[in-house]
Design a protein around this nucleic acid. Sequence first.
DNA 1: GATTAATACAGGGTTTTTCCTGTATTATAA
DNA 2: TTATAATACAGGAAAAACCCTGTATTAATC
Lengths: 222, 222
Amino acid sequence: MAVKPLPSLALVDDHKLFRKGLVSLIEMVNANYTILFEADNGMDMQKKINPSNQPDIILLDINMPGIDGFGCVQWLKDNFPLINILVVSMIEKEETIVRMLKLGVKGYLCKDVEPKELGDALSSIANKGFYYTDFITGKLVHSLQNGQSANGEANAISLLNDRERTFLQLACSEYTYNEIASQMYLSPKTIDGYRNTLFEKLNVKSRVGLALYAVKHGLVQL
Amino acid sequence: MAVKPLPSLALVDDHKLFRKGLVSLIEMVNANYTILFEADNGMDMQKKINPSNQPDIILLDINMPGIDGFGCVQWLKDNFPLINILVVSMIEKEETIVRMLKLGVKGYLCKDVEPKELGDALSSIANKGFYYTDFITGKLVHSLQNGQSANGEANAISLLNDRERTFLQLACSEYTYNEIASQMYLSPKTIDGYRNTLFEKLNVKSRVGLALYAVKHGLVQL
DNA sequence: GATTAATACAGGGTTTTTCCTGTATTATAA
DNA sequence: TTATAATACAGGAAAAACCCTGTATTAATC
């Protein structure tokens, strides 16, 4: 009788201390998995993965230098769509979680969970193919459907269209609105309009408010 | 002959997964330490620490809900000044490191270091009382002395005085300068002056620039 | 084919921000 | 004691930001 091979894992996280801690936790506490490889970042992961060397599950961080978690997911979906992705991030922003779920990850864990939950998530993904906790299925799936955040605040992803988003990004700069207008090939008056609708939508009252909103919700990098 | 007791450690970090990983790493790899307690955050730490229950070294995170790492250091320095603090944070901003060193922590590790370096840091602190790597002693101590950042950029801590800092924080809001003036009990014209000096010092050209600078350098929370 | 929604734009006005130059007061250092 | 630096403030003006109301065009929906 053939022995079913152990599910193989890969860990992608730039914080080596965290990564090694995870490995230690997984190996010591639970002998049901083999660690296929570890990677420091997206680039590193791309080098270590290939058709004959695919893990069953990738534990993936979001904040990483170079190609970040989102870039990794995109690349994995394009190139190795069968690999299950479990995001393990310190980010608890609903917007981020929603974005990741929309991209098709199989689970999302915050770094403050009990080690037990990591075990649950891994076995759930290995067996059922996904791990969506109540938190995710309850509050978040609902917000996915109607573009509303669980805490009542509107979420920027679904609220803004492409043009509005680029305007918002440009507003987070020291360009004047006139300069932004020419960069977007629009009349200053149209920019005027964008500003006013964003003030409404995002519930702010000044350009500083716009900028802070954008930073807070990850629409611009600092 | 009396046996020298093992150095005792405490871990303060809100990311349980990371904390447990650290514990696992420390216990498995190195049997030279005992773990006195773990805490989820500053408040939790304050509850678990008392004159007859002091660890030799505290591994302290910075980003935590409630009382953060800075608050913890302040409280520890006030109440248990003999405890050695080793900061273990994902923050690599020089300004943050400098602030921590000024507060008297005994070492600063980024979460992306090799597990070995954690071991080095612990034994160095346990024996010599501190662990300042080349990175810290080289570039950073220099910047402590002349208020210059290692990468040439001026750092906000030494560059701004108290009034300027509070002005900057208020500028990161939707108050008009007139409103800020009355809140600071100053004439709008004086505020005018502050703005202009900060434009110079921080090398920005608009209020949005001020706000983004402040966020980037951690002078305001989002 | 009419209605609605989304997008781009104008006129025209008020408020706020930005910039420049110059002064008075106080504390600090030479 | 006399520069010097830091802080608080003024006048005056140009530029940018903000706000309101209203129109034209196109695409989608009824």
